[in-house]
């Protein structure tokens, strides 16, 4: 399935080979030169099933663009263990704590399956965004779209639509 995305307003610029890896759905509507900027800050990573991408409390230094596989966002709850709060699949992204000080990770992220991801270095990205407001606006627009989707999905879950009406 492909999702519709806002089309780029400017003429496409030549895109370096590496930028093709950023054509994940969440950012695919970004301008080609902006995708190239992301690619310039990134490296390709892969994770085995069960491998941890990051842990709560750590420094938020990476934006992960998930190319394949599924990542679980988890939190360790004493006496219960690790609870998966949300899962994120291919085409989606993980991690935005790098956007705001104190750049501290809020959750654990663990690969549920084999995962490949574009890992964008946050310090590099913040520098580029400071230099190029259009890049910043384009990226923030796409991040906001993902966040809005996550927020409505979370609100839907708060409705608890599957509960047994007999429960009080």
């Amino acid at each position: 399935m492909t999702s519709p995305s806002p089309s780029a307003s400017s003429a496409p610029l030549p895109v370096p080979e590496t930028a093709s890896s950023f054509r994940v759905a969440a950012v695919s509507g970004m301008r080609a030169d902006h995708l190239a900027a992301l690619a310039g800050c990134a490296r390709e990573l892969s994770f085995e099933p069960g491998q941890v991408l990051f842990r709560e409390g750590g420094v938020a230094d990476t934006l992960y663009l998930i190319r394949s596989g599924t990542v679980a966002l988890e939190m360790f709850v004493p006496a219960r263990g690790s609870i998966s709060i949300d899962t994120v699949g291919a085409g989606d992204l993980v991690g935005w704590s790098w956007l705001f000080p104190p750049y501290r990770l809020q959750f654990d992220a663990r690969a549920l399956t084999a995962v490949t991801a574009g890992a964008v270095d946050a310090a590099c990205l913040r520098t580029r965004m400071a230099q190029d407001p259009e890049l910043a606006a384009d990226l923030l627009f796409h991040l906001a779209q993902v966040l809005a989707g996550r927020l409505s999905a979370t609100r839907m879950r708060l409705l608890d639509v599957y509960r047994n009406p007999a429960e009080r």
């Binding site: 998966s84 949300d86 699949g89």
Partner: peptide, 9 residues
Amino acid sequence: PGWDGRVGV
């Protein structure tokens, strides 16, 4: 805690 599948809507 035992669930290793998808979580979400």
